[in-house]
């Protein structure tokens, strides 16, 4: 038998790599255009570098005694992050189950849930924090609520995307033995996603530890409050200690969480 198979010829676009080139050009145009719109002056960044070095010099003399004062707020920052992430996750689990297209076949429920989640995710966390500081007053309650809502939005989306990739076979098997919906989820869904869930929880926790230092800056409790105070008082020695201590804490937590996630996946 004659073999008439040939290598197919590439189209014009494929041969000249039109798509990647076009994409790069559009990216560059958008970048230039948007920086002009937003009045970003790159030159100013370099012109003011001297001020930055000036600040560094003044911070180069950390007031180490300040450590004993910030110990407590640092601890509070971590607690805020853990509490906020946990509360957000607890709410995220049922929402992510309801938003997963392979578990909920009712398109209306699924879309309503997804719209709610999309809306939650569009709220900037600083705006949330400002609102909750106004409601609850300065302190960690505002921070925890902000982080909980932020984590809820983020984790729900990460979770339902994981759920949508699971193997449907075990679900079919559990349905075929006459299991109820909840039992099916417990036996056939949870074991498939648990590790990824924990990994995403830790990842969000990492982000929240970082975020909660910033949130404190606008009054939502934790180390940020002290950071803001020290800057206002031009107490740069204290600022340096706060920044260094925060950096170390964030690095340690990132390290632990990364290690755990590597073990899990």
């Amino acid at each position: 038998m004659e073999n008439s198979q040939k290598i197919p010829s590439r189209s014009f676009a494929q041969r000249w790599h039109i798509k990647p080139i076009l994409g790069t050009v559009i990216m560059v145009i958008l970048l230039v255009f948007s920086s002009q719109m937003a009045d970003v002056n790159v030159g100013m960044f370099f012109a003011n570098l001297s001020q930055f070095t000036d600040l560094l010099v003044r911070m180069s003399n950390p007031t180490w005694s300040y450590l004993s004062i910030i110990w407590q707020p640092l601890y509070e920052t971590i607690q805020m992050a853990i509490l906020g992430t946990t509360i957000g996750t607890i709410f995220a689990v049922p929402f992510s189950l309801l938003a997963a297209s392979n578990l909920v076949h009712n398109g209306i429920i699924r879309n309503v849930i997804r719209i709610i989640l999309d809306l939650v995710r569009t709220l900037p966390d600083l705006l949330l924090a400002a609102i909750f500081v106004a409601i609850f007053g300065i302190g960690s309650t505002a921070g925890v609520v902000t982080l909980a809502i932020f984590s809820f939005g983020m984790i729900s989306k990460l979770f339902y995307e994981v759920i949508e990739t699971i193997d449907m076979g075990p679900i079919e098997a559990l349905e075929s033995v006459g299991a109820r919906k909840l039992t099916v989820i417990w036996y056939a869904v949870i074991p498939q996603i648990l590790n990824q869930f924990i990994s995403y929880f830790l990842y969000t926790l990492e982000i929240n530890v970082r975020a909660s230092t910033v949130l404190g800056y606008i009054g939502a409790g934790g180390i940020g409050v002290f950071l803001q105070r020290s800057l206002n008082e031009f107490n740069y020695g204290a600022t340096a200690v706060i920044i260094l201590a925060t950096l170390i804490i964030v690095l340690v937590i990132d390290g632990i969480s990364n290690h755990l996630r590597r073990i899990l996946l």
């Binding site: 098997a173 006459g178 074991p191």
Partner: peptide
């Protein structure tokens, strides 16, 4: 429906066990 299903066993080409359990 659940009572019907529990008296009927089903075996699949891909076994459909929960791998991690």
């Amino acid at each position: 429906l659940r009572t019907l299903r529990r008296q009927i066993g089903m075996i699949f080409q891909n076994f459909n066990l929960v791998n991690r359990s």
